[in-house]
């Protein structure tokens, strides 16, 4: 097992190198002028584009620019983010907790709810339960996230004045700013930091700010998990071993839960793993509408503004996330299905 994990982590170095060369190459297809224009926000500043090209060596050959960047990265300097107005590394650790916090609440709900609904739908195939869950799933999956988020915001915040956007109320934010010694930001996630500091009001307030983003994310994403689970259940329930179990008099609960569901879980684990990995780059629509400045918002803004250091950083991060996710999935496969061995 240890050798397997070590091998996969060694592979990570090659993956990251490949990702960085590929992305750097893609970004180099933009002209030096276009990359220099990243620093320009008004026509007044545009006169200095040639000087900016010289200053940063944007017209140097590809390999020189790549190695210059790599040298800085190895020194721990990921560059400067124009979108975040601070070093990329610092900005990352500021935005990542916001995304992670939402995923910590959303991911378990997506997985558990998806498995439950899929199981229910698979067991009650072609009944009203199946039809209802399928219709809801299709509606959820088809809804544009941005629109759905706006509708929820307008109803709950606009009409009922509940669940305001942002991550924490102004009063509590001001309290934290004014009393830095009495509130330590251990994780950057207010729900958890509130608990660790014994400030349950902060935790509850942060949770209130999470209700709409998490609901939006769950409703939109749960459909995929549910569909995969349903298909798995239907397939498993049609297999001979289920018939054998039924013939031997096993009760329905044992057949559905202990046998069929366990076997149907394998593809769900794959899909859920990929969903969790993908969610680490944030949901752009959710973060923009609910004014939660996380990785999704940062990535979208950086892509529009061609903030190269940020794009490189997030792509490398996602490379790491996917390698670790796949490794975890492989280990989980072995746990769920003992026939699979990690050779």
């Amino acid at each position: 097992m240890l050798a397997f994990i070590t091998r996969r982590f060694l592979l990570l170095i090659f993956v990251l190198f490949g990702v960085s060369v590929l992305l750097f190459g893609i970004l180099m297809t933009f002209s030096p002028e276009r990359r220099a224009a990243t620093y320009v926000t008004s026509p007044q500043q545009a006169k200095d584009i040639p000087k900016i090209i010289k200053q940063f060596g944007l017209d140097d050959p590809f390999y020189i620019q790549y190695f210059r960047w790599m040298k800085e990265v190895l020194k721990g300097n990921m560059g400067w983010s124009l979108v975040a107005s601070r070093p990329v590394g610092e900005a990352f650790w500021n935005y990542f907790p916001v995304t992670l916090e939402m995923n910590l609440f959303a991911a378990p709900i997506v997985i558990i709810f998806g498995i439950w609904l899929g199981t229910l739908s698979g067991i009650h195939r072609d009944t009203w339960i199946d039809h209802t869950t399928r219709i809801l799933a299709i509606v959820g999956w088809s809804l544009p996230t941005f629109l759905f988020a706006l509708v929820l915001l307008m109803i709950f915040y606009g009409y009922f004045q509940l669940f305001s956007p942002g991550v924490l109320s102004d009063q509590l934010t001001m309290f934290i700013i004014e009393n830095p010694e009495s509130f330590t930001r251990f994780t950057g996630m207010y729900t958890i930091d509130g608990l660790l500091n014994g400030r349950f009001d902060i935790t509850l307030n942060a949770l209130a700010h999470l209700v709409l983003p998490v609901s939006t994310y769950v409703i939109v994403v749960v459909a995929l998990n549910m569909r995969v689970m349903r298909s798995g259940m239907i397939e498993e329930l049609s297999k001979d071993y289920v018939m054998t179990a039924q013939a031997k008099g096993a009760d329905k609960k044992t057949i559905y839960i202990k046998h069929a569901r366990r076997n149907a879980l394998l593809p769900v684990v794959t899909v859920a793993g990929q969903l969790v990995a993908l969610s680490m780059e944030g949901s752009i629509a959710v973060e923009v509408v609910y004014s939660r400045h996380g990785i999704g918002w940062w990535l979208a803004e950086s892509a529009v503004q061609l903030d190269m250091p940020v794009l490189m950083c997030i792509c490398l991060f996602m490379g790491v996330v996917f390698v670790i996710t796949n490794l975890t999935l492989d280990i989980l496969y072995a746990y769920i299905d003992p026939r699979i061995r990690l050779n």
């Binding site: 107005s85 102004d170 009063q171 009001d201 949770l207 209700v211």
Partner: peptide
């Protein structure tokens, strides 16, 4: 319910000594 009422309570508090401006442009320096 606590989360719900926290949200309700928040919506009613307005601070007369605080001015809040919502903008969409960022500051570089």
């Amino acid at each position: 319910l606590m989360v719900f009422f926290t949200a309700v309570a928040k919506a009613q508090v307005k601070n007369p000594e605080t001015f809040v401006l919502a903008d969409y442009r960022t500051v570089q320096t």
